[in-house]
Design a binder for these strands. Structure first.
Length: 982
RNA sequence: GCCGGGGUGGCGGAAUGGUAGACGCGGUGGUCUCAAACACCACUUGGGUUAAACCAGUGCGGGUUCGAGUCCCGCCCCCGGCACCA
């Protein structure tokens, strides 16, 4: 055997033996715990794998291999996400059919994964484009449809004029298509959606129980975007300019004293009655009467009730009497959503999205000048692309409609504007604008000269930022603030304060006011407290060929029928021309044999021709892996319930939202359907860091301009050689075919070996950190492996096969004990770090261990001492087994060389003995007043008193303490002594 | 702007509130060699010293503590995500 790591002499040999032995086939031995470790479903690209992919697969492989050795039943599958745009585009480019092309690429992926020694169970592999698989994707679509979670509607979609397809919102970056980089246009066509919004609350709440990176969970929470507030109705009033001025110029409209007294009496009566309507129908009737009177009084006074106590009366009366309020007939109204109902008294205008339907009605009732302005603005808004409309730092635009809305809180009219900073698709598409406490409204109000009223008392801290001298008193600053709020920019948005200028709510805390006004709005039946989500329904329609067909038949009557389960799958027809039609319809729509069919009643019908986006296919593949070849079911319940959830799911952070959210959604639906026992598919998630490669760019020439965000013009490595040094810019960029900076596992394996590549990837940095690729690092890894080979080679002559039976009976000297201590500590640390995804420290423990063995001269000593020979034998086995997950080829080669049968994969993972990790002596740090001054080595079991004495009496310390009085001594056992003295 | 993650030697990075810099790369010196490469051994945070002592030190400024890279408060910078979401 070699005394160095010579991968070409054994790596492929072991790969063949593993294959011949079906080593990685999933085993389900009864009585053992299970472990499901999985990598993200890859799309098999024609470029093949880069070392960046290996940074994902190798660590998962290490964990799974350790779990197998620890006696777990391990499911470690791999398949291919074959459907979708990238494959189709590639096939079009190559003028081939995607199916055989994908098969070829997947085979190449598999070859490369095997080359690196990943322990996938290939017997469970499949591609999402296999009819055996997508039959069940369609079956799940039908479950969703039956549960009312799949529906079709006309929708404005993102149209990519280059790929000639519809894109999901998430596939657009800055107004451009992520893939083709084309500027996205709008187009209206019927689309299929999944109603993921129905699961928003559960998708949000269940994040708490997941062992996922905080950042990913935060991104999902942000994406779901829950906000709680109040939605209420505002009446439209068509009043004159003069009337508007009068309303604001004169005294504030307020409840007449008589009405107020009447209301107070009502409250007293309601409170006195004690309300037990369920047992007392008389009281209920009385309550009904009181409430009706209260409502009448409120409306007669032409304003709502402000008093908190009356509000309570309304509230309790309505709840306890089980009453329904019938609001007064209102002519024209719209709803607004706000999270800051506490600022309602500060409303000075309203804004409608230009697309809001009520704008049509308003338009019909205002003077021609306003009508013209409204039309002009709406036209403008329509033409603006989404990019332009959502550009950062864009000046606010908008026009006054000429109409007013009535603030229900104080009865005052406020102008209604239309502006595109209000989005039609969120909330109600209309807002109450409070420029005093909302920055956007403030910017708008200042630009258009709209009144700003402060209604939340700003804090001292906020105000003093606007005063240079800072010496002013709070009251003085507050007075200045109140007299001209527009000077105070940015606005005071904090909720940690109390109300001002808010009628009877003045003085309440924001929280109290929110609760109180919320109840009041509900009692008055002009609105409700409501939860809004940013999350939108999931658009799945793709007007492309290479996807899973949607199993729906449209009947002549326009009815949607699901294809019966026994007729699934709806097969993708085998055709020559699958290029996009370019008119927005799917290529399938132009294949009569596919489209024309009969419906369930035997009449002529038409098949749905849209296909599902790729995210549908990857939303359940983890379930199929549990039972991949079942041809009568999507999965066997027992199988799925045994393996699920995925215990550790590993992949890139770029799928933070879409894939993971969709897969969670499907799992929840399937849970509701009783098809799986878990509510969440992925118990633990880990994101690997990216691999960056040194990439050459050059400075732009005089006639060239850089796009936004570009630092230089990409050049090939070849070009770079002929460019002068000073014009070159080297940057670390993500490996990609287009950048020409890809390092492949093939070349790394050829040059350094698979195990060296694996060790480097594990060791170079923490798992989730980005790394800068350096070949020297792989060399260093190979050197380490060579040191292991040399150690085993040198120690082998002293190897005692049955050391484990003998070691307990041998008197062990200090060296032997030291070796065992290092062995058992290493087992402890390695095991813990692999579980914790600390692969870089896993490798460093092994390096440290090997250094310790060499430093102890244990090989030389083993020749003379039986105890040392036994300890060394244990060390040889241990280091090979601990190395096995990271460098499985080398481990098996070494294992074979010390005369072991079978594979390390089948061996038992070493266990550590706590007692053996304990040091006999320890080096104690001695501090004086918290500063390290000396160290002392003492027996591990020394008493605190003896340790203190030992610490005080070292030459250095006694000299330092000379003349000082010891005030206090802190002893941390086996760590340090801190002497406080002065 | 908001959310999340970071900031430690020349570099990648280690450090349950307890000896900062494990492990590796690079560098310096040495052994081997005719020589080089490989390999091996030693040293390698900065200042200081013949050597030590000693001083400084984990983005910046405060604080808590016997003791802070680690905890708290206030900033700065970098990376990722979201971005007029009412």
């Amino acid at each position: 055997m070699a005394d160095r790591y010579d991968p070409s002499s054994f790596e492929s040999k072991w790969q063949e033996r593993w294959k011949d032995a079906d080593l990685f086939v999933t085993r389900e031995v009864p009585g053992r715990p299970k472990f499901y470790g999985m990598d993200f479903f890859p799309y098999p690209s024609g470029a093949g794998l880069s070392v960046g992919h290996c940074r994902n697969y190798v660590p998962t492989d290490v964990l799974c291999r350790m779990k197998v050795m620890q006696g777990y039943n391990v499911l470690h599958p791999m398949g291919f996400d074959a459907f979708g745009l990238p494959a189709e585009n590639e096939a079009i480019k190559q003028k081939s059919h995607p199916a055989p092309m994908i098969e070829k690429y997947a085979a190449n992926y598999r070859r490369q994964m095997d080359l690196v020694g990943i322990s996938y169970d290939w017997s469970r592999s499949f591609a999402s484009s296999d009819p055996d698989y997508y039959k069940w994707t369609q079956w799940i679509f039908e479950i969703l449809h039956k549960r009312g979670l799949a529906y079709r509607r006309l929708a404005a979609v993102n149209w990519d004029p280059v790929d000639k397809t519809v894109l999901a919102d998430e596939e657009i970056i800055g107004g451009r298509a992520e893939r083709s980089n084309a500027i996205v246009e709008k187009k209206w066509i019927p689309q299929w959606f999944f109603k993921i919004t129905e699961y928003a609350e559960r998708l949000l709440n269940d994040l708490d129980e997941l062992d996922w990176p905080e950042g990913i969970k935060a991104q999902q929470r942000n994406w779901i975007g829950k906000s709680e507030g109040v939605q209420f109705r505002m009446q439209v009033a068509f009043i004159s300019d003069e009337e508007f001025k009068k309303a604001w110029g004169g005294q504030a409209v307020s409840t007449t004293p008589e009405t107020r007294d009447e209301l107070k009496e009502l409250v007293a009566e309601i409170e006195a009655s004690g309300f037990k309507p369920e047992v007392d129908s008389l009281t209920a009737a009385k309550a009904a009467n009181l409430v009706a009177n209260a409502e009448k009084a409120a409306f007669d006074a032409n304003r709502p009730i402000e008093s908190e106590s009356v509000t309570h009366a309304f509230e309790s009366a309505s709840v306890k009497a089980g009453l329904e309020f019938v609001p007064k007939e209102r002519s024209l109204s719209f709803e607004v959503f706000t999270t800051r109902i506490d600022t309602v008294f500060g409303m000075t205008f309203c804004v409608l999205a230009p697309e809001h339907e009520i704008v049509d009605k308003i338009r019909g009732s205002v003077s021609p000048e306003f009508k013209a302005k409204i039309d002009e603005y709406r036209e403008q808004a329509k033409l603006l692309s989404d990019t332009a409309r959502t550009a950062t730092d864009r000046e606010k635009t908008g026009v006054f409609t000429g109409a007013y809305a009535v603030n229900p809180a104080n009865g005052k009219p406020v102008p209604i504007w239309i502006a595109d900073y209000v989005l039609a698709g969120y909330g109600t598409g209309a807002i109450m604008a409070v420029p005093g406490h909302d920055q956007r409204d403030f910017d708008f109000a200042v630009k258009f000269g709209i009144n700003v009223i402060p209604v939340i008392k700003p804090t001292q801290e906020y105000l003093s930022a606007f005063f240079e001298d800072g010496g002013k008193g709070y009251d003085e600053m507050l007075a200045a603030y109140q007299s001209d709020v527009t000077r105070f920019n940015p606005v005071f948005e904090s909720k940690d304060s109390t109300l001002i200028n808010s009628g009877e709510y003045t003085g309440m805390s924001v929280q109290e006011a929110q609760a109180s006004l919320g109840r009041w709005v509900e009692a008055l039946d002009i609105g409700t407290r409501k939860t809004q989500f940013k999350l939108r329904d999931w658009l799945i329609s793709r007007q492309r060929y290479w996807g899973c067909p949607i199993p729906v038949i449209h009947t002549k009557d326009g009815e949607e029928q699901l294809v019966p389960e026994d007729c699934l799958p709806v097969l993708l027809p085998d055709v020559d021309n699958y290029e996009p039609s370019g008119d927005g319809s799917s290529p399938l729509a132009h294949i009569p044999d596919f489209v024309n069919t009969t419906d369930l009643d035997g009449r002529l019908g038409q098949r749905e021709t849209d296909t599902m986006g790729g995210f549908a296919c990857s939303s359940w593949y983890f379930l199929r892996f549990c039972d991949p070849h079942n041809d009568s079911k999507a999965w066997n319940l027992d199988q799925a319930n045994y393996w699920m959830p995925v215990d550790c799911y590993v992949g890139g952070a770029e799928h933070a939202v879409m894939h993971l959210l969709y897969a969670r959604f499907w799992t929840k639906v399937l849970f509701d359907e009783g098809l799986i026992k878990v509510k969440e598919p992925f118990a633990r998630l880990e994101n690997q860091g990216q691999v960056l490669a040194h990439t050459p760019y050059r400075k732009p020439r005089a006639d060239e301009r850089l796009d936004v965000g570009e630092d230089g013009i990409l050049v090939s490595f070849k070009e770079a050689e002929s460019i002068p040094e000073e014009d070159l810019i080297w940057r670390w960029a993500r490996m990609s075919k287009s950048k020409g900076n890809v390092v492949t596992p093939d070349e790394m394996v050829r040059e350094y070996g698979a195990d060296a590549l694996r060790i480097y990837l594990l060791f170079v940095a923490p798992f989730n950190a980005d790394i800068e690729w350096k070949n020297e690092g792989v060399e260093a890894a190979a050197r380490f492996l060579s040191r292991v080979f040399r150690f085993v080679e040198e120690a082998k002559p002293h190897f005692v096969e049955n050391w484990a039976d003998l070691i307990a009976f041998e008197e062990l000297d200090e060296t032997a004990q030291g070796i065992r201590r290092a062995t058992h500590k290493t087992i402890r640390d390695v095991t813990k770090d692999i579980d914790a995804f600390g692969f870089n420290t896993y490798i460093s423990w092994l390096m440290k261990y090997l250094n310790a063995l060499n430093d102890a001269k244990c090989v030389a000593k083993a020749a003379e001492n039986r105890g040392v020979a036994l300890a060394v034998s244990e060390a040889i086995e241990t280091i090979i087994l601990l190395l096995s997950p990271a460098a499985p080829h080398s481990a098996d080669e070494l294992w074979d060389n010390i005369g072991k049968e079978m594979f390390t994969y089948q061996a038992e993972w070493p266990k550590f003995d706590e007692a053996l990790t304990v040091e006999s002596e320890s080096t104690i740090a001695i501090q004086v007043n918290g500063k390290l001054r000396d160290t002392v080595t003492v027996p591990a079991d020394i008493s605190e008193e003896a340790l203190t004495e030992a610490a005080k009496s070292t030459p250095k310390i006694s000299a330092l303490l000379n003349g000082l009085t010891v005030r206090k001594v802190i002893v941390v056992p086996s760590k340090l002594v801190n002497i406080v003295a002065n």
